[in-house]
Amino acid sequence: MIRVAVRAEAIDVAAELAAHDAGGHGASASFVGRVRGDGGLTELFLDHHPAMTAAGLTALAEEAARRWTLDASTLIHRVGAMAPGDTIVLVLASSRHRAEALAACEYLIDRLKTDVMLWKRESFADGRVAWVEERGADRARAARWG
């Protein structure tokens, strides 16, 4: 089962895990991404495409299901304005065994960073506002999956 959401409301990790794990999967792997307050960051804003961002998450989950034997996957990405400590993204992947769940979870977050229509803008205490630049390290991690 694939569950995908793109939304402005806070992500309740415990509630999402409970919903995801309702089937009592053998092995579930998770990735939780949070806003860091580095360098005096006061706000992180996420821009997105009203249709393509969710479609991109769904396509990723479908590709993961082709590569591994998965019982369930959940991809939830927050958009709009966030503060340090807020959860930006939650990835859950479940399989009968840990190796597939862990690999699928890593694949999903690596490829999400390079394949899905989302853009970060950072605001800092000193008034600076800047769109985040693409990172070569993210491209390299995503490319490992072919």
Binding site: H77, L112, L118
Partner: peptide, 24 residues
Amino acid sequence: AMVGADAPIGDAGEVALFPPVTGG
């Protein structure tokens, strides 16, 4: 559908233009 610069527009309804993505 994500495309390269040489992709034809044809009779497309919408073209989206944007910087490299930075989600996650």
